[in-house]
Design a protein around this nucleic acid. Structure first.
Length: 571
DNA sequence: CTTTAAACTTAGTACGGATACC
DNA sequence: GGTATCCGTACTAAGTTTAAAG
């Protein structure tokens, strides 16, 4: 970003806050806070395409049509066939249509006309001249440049998202009991704004409307919040500064400092929970055993959930049905965790914990809690006794960071190319991602892509075979190779071509393996949230890997405070 | 003590532009 | 120069933690 191009009135950007002392953790977060408030997605534009109900075209009012169009955008996706999703949408939709409406069920509705209309609109948008797209993009950029920043104590900081969530269907993950409910359109009357007492109240962007409430709470870092009045179960949505801001960066840095402190006392803590595992008190046995699992397997703590949410668990909310006892003190954990991602792992544990867990299951039904005597709250209470502010999630941060550092320490520099070094880093990164169970769905058309690569690999192998035969021919003069391909004339060149083909095969094999290894593993999540960036920065500097090979632009901005780590820096 | 909720971090996915590939 | 794939980012859901309320 060329700073000289930015508007004159701009305040100083970024304060190099990481250079000074950051011990001051007072509850006052700012003295002055100014911003432009939030903006709203464009109003609904009716298209007039009818819905077909039992063969009959039904024209809807704009309000009804907007809701029908939300469903039409789901047609053809997995959402369309999810039972709860259908049921929830149906009841909201019928309510909006009114009691005496012709439409009595979702099953009789044919949204194809509307779906096709949306699709063609999308195509049209895609096919616009690139000039037009560029102009639109630049206009959007301009708005963000003008409105997407807050001034916090004289520093200009980027805001994460200044446009409120557009209306749509709630897409809860997994078997979410509220999926398919309608997220209504928000108005300024739903928005609470937080600004400094002496700062200007942002102008409400919709004429005739006004903000719900203006507050001056400088013990928090949010700029605005809202909740959907229609979606009773949903929680508040906060608008914060971006990840590159001081607020976020400082607390991120402190998080890693805390994880580092945990490293200093991890032996003490492990000794303590090992003692608890052998305790006479059942509560202590459970506390010790649960913490053992959190530490060893990097499990989340597992708060209780309500019936309005998907049935997922973490350590303290594990049920008897989620654990199986195997031979050699191995257990298999099989449960749905955050985002309904499956955790499925067979692992050997110490006999003491193995026996404890077995005992905790005794006499319980499969739907009973494994750790019935403790909660996330009590476990965190136990952790606080070791260190102020220590909580269960810190073990994930600590274990991810220490694991990365240990993996990277195994690196032996010996003339590797940058690509090979990056590959080594990625392998270390993958270990951490697996530990934290960070997953993604297999990319669409993954099979096809693999097949293509294998096809190419086969071709290359065939090349090698031909070249080898050709080599024999050159050497012996017998059995010239019958092929349409051009072959090198000299032995020297054949040798070269062969070597080149072999390297290509090796690279393709590596690529193929890497694709397969990574197909369901999300590497970014641990990079963004768990591994102390200073470990990465120090390793890159030491091994002459440009940091941008490992941290993309936004990550470098987020971790600006970590960029000064020296080669000798240690977690 | 238990429950609620405010405030913040962590998470996967959709999408569109950038880049590689033919 | 057009198309396929990659990659970064925007989006928003889903966790955790802790303070306050009941």
């Amino acid at each position: 970003m060329e700073t000289e191009d930015l508007p004159k009135k701009r305040k100083k950007e970024s304060s190099h806050w990481w250079e000074g002392d950051q011990e001051d953790q007072s509850s006052i977060k700012w003295m002055s806070l100014e911003h432009h408030g939030l903006f709203f997605p464009p109003l609904y534009q009716p298209h007039g395409v009818p819905l077909v109900y039992n063969g009959e075209p039904i024209y809807l009012t704009p309000e009804q049509e907007e809701i029908a169009t939300m469903w039409a955008s789901v047609v053809g996706t997995e959402w369309e066939t999810k039972e709860i999703f259908r049921k929830n949408f149906e009841s909201s939709f019928l309510k909006i249509l009114g009691e005496n409406h012709k439409i009595k069920s979702l099953n009789g509705c044919d949204f194809k006309g509307i779906s096709m209309h949306i699709e063609s609109q999308r195509e049209l948008k895609k096919l616009r001249p690139s000039e037009e797209k560029k102009t639109e993009r630049e206009a959007k950029q301009k708005i963000i440049e003008e409105m997407g920043y807050a001034i916090v104590d004289n520093t200009r900081e980027k805001i994460s998202n200044i446009i409120v969530e557009p209306p749509g269907l709630f897409r809860g993950r997994g078997q979410h009991p509220k999926g398919g409910n309608i997220k209504g359109r928000l108005a300024p009357e739903d928005i609470t704004i937080n600004i400094g007492k002496r700062n200007k109240v942002p102008i409400c962007p919709l004429p005739g409307h006004s903000w719900k409430f203006i507050t001056h709470n400088n013990t928090t870092t949010w700029l605005a919040f809202y909740e959907d009045p229609e979606l009773s179960f949903s929680s508040k949505k906060y608008v914060y500064l971006s990840a590159a801001s001081k607020f976020k960066g400082l607390s991120d840095k402190l998080k890693y400092e805390k994880a580092k402190k945990l490293k200093e006392m991890i032996d003490e803590i492990r000794a303590d929970y090992n003692k608890k595992i052998l305790s006479d008190s059942s509560v202590n046995k459970q506390l010790g055993s649960a913490l053992y699992l959190i530490d060893k397997l990097a499990l989340r703590v597992g708060n209780e959930k309500t019936e309005d949410e998907a049935d997922t668990v973490g350590c303290c909310s594990l049920r008897v049905e989620h654990i199986k006892f195997e031979k050699n003190h191995q257990i298999t954990l099989d449960f749905l965790g955050k985002d309904s991602m499956r955790y499925f792992n067979t692992v050997q544990i110490v006999p003491e914990v193995y026996n404890n867990l077995k005992e905790f299951c005794k006499g319980k039904e499969k739907e009973n809690d494994l750790f019935d005597l403790i909660t996330a709250h009590t476990l965190n209470g136990y952790l606080r006794s070791f260190m102020h502010g220590l909580s269960a999630k810190m073990f994930r941060t600590y274990n991810a960071s220490i694991s990365l550092q240990q993996q990277l320490a195994k690196f032996k520099a010996k003339n590797q190319s940058v690509e090979e070094k990056v590959q080594f880093y990625t392998d270390a990164n993958r270990e951490v991602a697996i530990l934290c169970n960070h997953q993604k769905s297999t990319p669409k058309n993954f099979e096809g892509m693999i097949e293509k690569l294998q096809e190419k690999l086969k071709e290359k192998l065939e090349d090698i075979r031909i070249l080898e035969d050709h080599m024999k021919f050159i050497k012996t003069g017998r059995n010239s190779v019958d092929t349409e391909r051009k072959l090198p004339c000299t032995e020297e060149n054949t040798k070269k071509a062969l070597a080149k083909a072999k390297t290509a095969v090796k690279n393709m094999e590596i690529k193929l393996k890497m694709k397969d290894d990574n197909k369901t593993i999300a590497l970014q999540t641990s990079k963004i949230n768990y591994m102390d960036p200073r470990i990465t920065v120090a390793w890159c500097k030491k091994n002459e890997v440009p940091i941008e090979k490992v941290f993309a632009k936004t990550l470098r901005a987020k971790f600006i405070w970590a960029m000064y780590a020296e080669t000798t820096w240690e977690f």
